[in-house]
Design a protein around this nucleic acid. Sequence first.
DNA 1: TGTGCTGCTGACCATGCAGTCAGTTTAATA
DNA 2: TATTAAACTGACTGCATGGTCAGCAGCACA
Lengths: 207, 207
Amino acid sequence: MGEAAAGAAMKTKQQVVSEFRRAEIVDAARTVFARKGFAQGIMDEIAKEAGVAKGTLYLYFRSKTEIYKAVLDHDMRALKKSTLERLDAEKGLRGKIRAFAFVRLERAEANKEFFRIMDSESGALSYTRSQYRDWLREPVLRLASAIGKAAEQGKIRRVDPEKTAWLIADITRGTIQRRLLSQKETPLAADAEFLLDFIWASLAAKL
Amino acid sequence: MGEAAAGAAMKTKQQVVSEFRRAEIVDAARTVFARKGFAQGIMDEIAKEAGVAKGTLYLYFRSKTEIYKAVLDHDMRALKKSTLERLDAEKGLRGKIRAFAFVRLERAEANKEFFRIMDSESGALSYTRSQYRDWLREPVLRLASAIGKAAEQGKIRRVDPEKTAWLIADITRGTIQRRLLSQKETPLAADAEFLLDFIWASLAAKL
DNA sequence: TGTGCTGCTGACCATGCAGTCAGTTTAATA
DNA sequence: TATTAAACTGACTGCATGGTCAGCAGCACA
């Protein structure tokens, strides 16, 4: 088995380098697209940012569009993954809602460039927008099912779980946008708690 | 005074025609930009859509960017205006919140093209995004002040009025986006009421 | 040192499109 | 109907930029 693994690893030897180059290019592209948007994000600039010649970009990607997709794909996959993980790690609904909002706010903080692309450039390719919703859907539906269960158990009032989950996503997204746009840096935790209180007050309300 | 008015009107004689042409061009541009986005929204196509030659566009606007801005400016101004009007027409907070959401949902229905531009193309020009927030700010702040008053009077629980108002705006925007994207047409009133219930449950909650 | 292979380079090409302007149509006035 | 001004036209120009490819550099092995 060590042998087989080594065999596989050998072949990867060059592939590893190749993967690394791709990653470098994707990083450069993210920076440029975040700065200039898709249309103004020139291939020459991406190349310069990546420290390679333009031709090299085309050794690793077919086209500009493909690089763009690669950036989104990579980052969205990561965002989705960590959202789902943190969601599953929590037991109670309140914790899950907090987790949902928190991961996303945190990642927005740590990866502003990506969120800036998401936020202000989402329609550059018709691809992007629908894709964004697709990546978002699974976490939202998982949240929805938690809402459904909590409602059945009488822990919160009866609501349409899916619609409610989408509203939570809306609030989260809006808060992220506002944070990205505003100059003064408000503490993340404050925004997160405010958001959570608002939601929870609604769900746990006894009218 | 009739004389003076007539004098003013005379001068407008040509100006009226000019205004009309501008409006025609703006309408055509809105259609094209909604269909293709800013970058792919070609001047030739706008001209064709407006039923004039490309050169004519440049008799009424300096550049493509200026046409784009004219579209946004016109529609955002109208949206802001009717939002404020409906907001002021309502007395109670619940009515105001409903009004806020309702007008926007209605206008999104009646003017899908504009909202499609807003939604998926907002970052095409760096201009757009910040501008959108500016147009939105005044209605949101007015809503915030109503929230503040209601809180003082003990009609709702104590909350940060401005932050809360922005959350309401987030939810409204998200709902509009979902409606624009989804195939099946859900009744507007249902979405509006759901949204309102969610918000109101939070604000009026006794925990 | 020579030979060949791999990955990289950047000047170059092709295309698409914003913006122009010489010329034509339309309309108003005499 | 003739004259002229204003509005409109669309072929054309220049430029920006995505994508290509002939050749170069670096390296391995003899």
